[in-house]
Design a protein around this nucleic acid. Structure first.
Lengths: 131, 131
DNA sequence: TGAATTCCTACTAATTTGGTAGTAAAATAA
DNA sequence: TTATTTTACTACCAAATTAGTAGGAATTCA
């Protein structure tokens, strides 16, 4: 049971963009790559997932990069991890239609409870708290 | 971020043994295997991990199997998952000596908080609650 | 002695994770 | 227009982890 590097790096990226939010400047992935010693190519890949969540204004070319559309305080950690990990369910059973046997399964309430706990926690935190 | 089948099946095993607790009878893995349609060999493997936690009395041979040493109410879900998954830390950073940079890392409090939340939850639940 | 069971060791297939590589497309500035 | 910087897209690949499988040895009980 692990958050993958994908999820962790996604948060790292978001923290960088969060810190730059007030300046309205674009931050390029190469800048983050250098500062965090994470390969540019891998960051690009993670960005593909993050972009689906529509967090960014994007600017190509010189001095381009990414910029948050919303204030860091308005972006929940849950939305970031969910976008990066694609899936934020601790067991398949709790997914919609994840288990045909929910009603009779003794274990289901446990996994559902844990899943809810995690989601609630991550939803209760926002990016602004960690800058 | 997933609980593996190993962790889930471990709980399944423990639920069976928990239900049999009052009868003091031994339950064999082949019985659980049949009832749950999980391969006997895989259950045996999971059992290797679980046994490290010293949950069971063991009886080989006819009518043998496993039996809980303690009341289901005295066995936390956390102790089960921890034994099965070997590791119950959501990110490596929160492990002892998991990160040399803890103090300066903006993300650390988040992962630590989440990890604590999960552990607290699983430690607060016991096997008896799910029988 | 025979059947049922755990115990032990080793192997393997499938999936996920953690990347890398190359190139196209867009934006900007000279 | 051209060079540079950036994102966007597509494809591939290696390592690690997960999810098993296989075969037999040891133990226990009837």
């Amino acid at each position: 049971m692990k958050i993958s590097t994908k999820g962790r790096y996604a948060l790292t990226i978001m923290l960088h963009l969060g810190r730059a939010y007030d300046s309205h400047q674009y931050i390029s992935l190469s800048e983050i790559s250098e500062r965090e010693k994470i390969s540019l190519k891998y960051l690009e890949k993670i960005m593909i997932s993050l972009k689906k969540a529509d967090f960014f204004d994007v600017q190509k070319g010189k001095d381009g990069g990414y910029r948050l559309k919303k204030k860091p305080e308005e972006i929940t950690i849950g939305s970031i991890i969910r976008a990066a990990e694609e899936e934020l369910d601790i067991v398949d059973c709790v997914k919609k239609d994840g288990c045909p046997n929910k009603e009779r399964c003794d274990a289901y309430p446990l996994w559902k409870g844990l899943s809810d706990e995690i989601n609630l926690y991550l939803e209760s935190k926002n990016l602004g708290e960690y800058l």
